[in-house]
Design a protein around this nucleic acid. Structure first.
Lengths: 236, 236
DNA sequence: GAGTGGTCTAGACCACCTT
DNA sequence: AGGTGGTCTAGACCACTCA
């Protein structure tokens, strides 16, 4: 047995994924076990492998499902999530989980250029966004209340950038994007119906206006299999 | 037992990571098992968790080690790997694993704008790059021989972009970057002394010159914990 | 050669989802 | 209420690394 058993089980399962449709539920682990003749732990090893590859995902305590293709995402463009996803023939949705004015954490305060220990507060939004009904990301957005007073009176499921532009006359001219693989915390996992510790992709965006003010600090945690970043850069 | 045992083991191990230096080897799994009183599988569960979080990594069949901090990488800048890493106070190194002229695969041919079934060949380089002696990425670079004839006569551990500019007068003015979490194939894992299926980060760069020609197609597979992308975008 | 991590087995119990 | 995935145990053997 030169190649481990769990890899042949992986291949066997992978072969069937095409027959199952996108989003379809896989047979139970105990069924897969019966078919493959392996112990359940070995079957799970194979499933974890496919999860890392982005071919299947799980909904916590529910089961394993075939991954839909990833969304292609350009964090430097400002078309907005709803437009992007629709352009790719998918159905986006946004849900605002919370919206409040709260004290700025040190990280947020620094990102928005607040003075240390100023005790400033920020607008904090938490949104869950889904593609074709599957929750793919949770984001925390922080906005300086001095730049966008009364922000919370707007409909927050829309493009926030449009609100900033149309209601406050603030245009984004510079964006700093940070990206890093991560593990889902228990909070993030709960929001995404995933298991805590599942692999994710962290994208942090800080947006600046023409005056150089940090207007928006956006922290997005994606399911790692749900997104592919694509950026097009032209040098001057 | 509201929180799973493997998570308390994780916390216990995480607490000790500070005391161990960066790059230090963790105690063996059987030692950790003895300390925690858990079964070995549970200890491994905890270690996998820390691996996903990017706090520890393993060298295949050797053991678990404390992760150094990630390299901050801007794929849109052309400073080059060696310059980047050095700027961050780390020691970069590059090793050319192979350099040859070979038929272009369909993916490469399309990326470089070759006509379909043209039977064109390309220069293909495979390089391994390390930070402080730890292999962090393997890259496959493909260059159009019509644009850079005799490329293989140069010293290929250097910045390829500089060679293109200084020897061939080709400047990159546009870059398309694609990025996606992935799993290491057995080939990539072998090059990086990792386990096949370990989490990775795939970065694909296609670079164009002023004439709009695709000059270079670069496919980089990173250890997922070794890199943090950072991009700064200004809109005109 | 000793000890390591990698793989694998064959069970078990529980909390939770689904029906 | 039944079945699921999540967690956990207590072993075992092997290929490999390292001293």
């Amino acid at each position: 047995m030169s190649t481990p058993h769990y890899l042949s089980v992986r291949d066997e399962i992978a072969r069937r994924l095409g027959a199952l449709g996108i989003g379809a539920k896989l047979p139970s682990e105990r069924e897969l076990q019966a078919v493959s003749g392996a112990a359940r732990g070995t079957v799970r090893e194979a499933l974890f492998q496919l999860e890392t590859e982005g071919l299947i995902y799980r909904r916590d305590r529910s089961g394993w499902y075939v991954c839909p293709p990833p969304i292609v995402y350009d964090p430097t463009q400002w078309a907005g999530f709803m437009a992007y996803v629709a352009d790719q023939g998918r159905t986006p949705s946004t849900e605002t989980l919370s919206a409040e004015r709260a004290p700025a954490s040190p990280v947020v305060a620094q990102a928005l250029g607040f003075e240390a220990d100023g005790g400033r507060s920020v607008y904090a939004l938490r949104r869950r966004r889904a593609v074709d009904g599957r929750a793919v990301l949770v984001e925390d957005i922080h906005v300086d209340p001095l730049i966008a007073p009364d922000l919370l009176t707007f409909s927050l499921n829309d493009s926030l950038t449009r609100i900033l532009r149309e209601a406050y006359g603030v245009s984004i001219v510079r964006t700093r994007v940070d990206m890093q693989p991560c593990a889902l915390t228990s909070v993030e996992a709960a929001v995404l119906a995933a298991k805590p510790g599942a692999p994710g992709l962290l994208i942090v965006r800080t947006s600046f206006d023409a005056l150089g003010r940090a207007v928006e600090y956006d922290r997005e945690v994606w399911r790692h299999d749900a997104v592919r970043l694509q950026i097009d850069i032209s040098r001057v």
